[in-house]
Design a protein around this nucleic acid. Structure first.
Length: 294
DNA sequence: ATCCAGGCTCCTG
DNA sequence: CAGGAGCATGGA
């Protein structure tokens, strides 16, 4: 059992940041006796990490023995996942000039985007959640983890870690349709996993490319459209200025927050979102938070 | 029931 | 090449 402490940049609200992990994007996270846990990989090996807050720092309790190299990798992932180094203040000053967005942002001071630990995990989860209720998408992710991810012992209980591309590449389409994935989605997920597992696509290498280059690289792949790449840039890499304007949740949020008579289309959301640049990802994230609270 | 979900591909005219 | 059906299922 090893402890890791990270002091994030201020403002940081632990409560607001983890709220959606438990209620919305729960896959990979779990709660036992009021404590929040996450399964992660370091050097390919699965770990269970407890996440908590002790003013003014995040703490992470790593279960089991860990080598210095694994510890370093876990710390690096966790810093990125919780956006601890992001300076929110320029975004707050920007949002304050918008009558509609301003209050939504002010009410959520210290809310940080929580990213996925790997681009592979982010991309697969994003594909799974295309066009589905978040609750059903979460069920499918859990089933995929149960089928393909290895077990990690957690106090006598077997919890699951998100599978590697190799583990998913070894499945058949039927394995996923049996879990109630539709046929197409089963193909997208397995074909993509095979491409990554065979080394024909270096997902993590995309971190060094621009938004536009990532878009160009991924759009030709089957099952990956503009929305999916925007979500990868936002939830996988934490890029600050993405606008998934086709997103139904964002469109609902914009309608409500901006008091529009009808649900805006993709083009109208892009037009309204111009004003949020260069913080469109953060505006999107805060608007999502506003719409998923009820 | 019926319609819609944090889209995308494929087929049609 | 724009427009629309179909997807697999659960929740409102």
């Amino acid at each position: 059992m090893e402890m890791l402490q990270i002091r994030p940049r201020s403002p940081f609200s632990f409560e607001r940041t983890i709220r959606r992990l438990v209620h919305v994007q729960k896959s990979g996270y779990f709660v036992r006796e009021g404590k929040l846990y996450r399964t992660l990989r370091a050097k390919g090996r699965p770990f269970v990490v407890e996440l908590g807050w002790q003013e003014p720092s995040l703490f992470f309790r790593i279960h089991g023995a860990v080598t210095p190299g694994e510890r370093r990798e876990l710390e690096e992932q966790l810093r990125r996942m919780f956006s601890v180094d992001v300076d929110l203040l320029p975004f707050y000053r920007h949002a304050d000039r918008d009558d509609r967005l301003g209050p939504v942002v002010r009410e959520r001071e210290g809310l940080r985007p929580v990213l996925d630990p790997s681009l592979y995990e982010c991309l697969i989860k994003t594909i799974i959640s295309q066009q589905l209720h978040l609750s059903f998408a979460g069920t499918l992710v859990d089933r995929l983890m149960a089928l393909a991810g290895e077990r990690v012992d957690f106090e006598g209980e077997a919890v699951r870690v998100f599978p590697t591309p190799e583990q998913v590449a070894a499945l058949s389409y039927d394995d996923l349709t049996r879990l109630q994935f539709n046929r197409r989605k089963a193909e997208y997920i397995i074909d993509l996993s095979r491409i990554v597992a065979e080394g024909r696509l270096d997902l993590e290498g995309l971190r060094r490319r621009s938004d536009e280059e990532v878009m160009e690289t991924l759009l030709p792949l089957r099952g990956i459209g503009r929305w999916t790449v925007e979500c990868l840039l936002l939830f996988g890499m934490g890029r600050p200025d993405l606008l998934p304007a086709a997103d139904i949740g964002l469109r609902r949020a914009v309608q409500r927050v901006y008091g529009l008579p009808e649900r805006p289309g993709e083009e109208e959301v892009r037009r309204i979102g111009e004003a949020w640049a260069p913080w469109r990802s953060y505006a999107t994230f805060y608007l999502w938070d506003a719409i998923t609270e009820g």
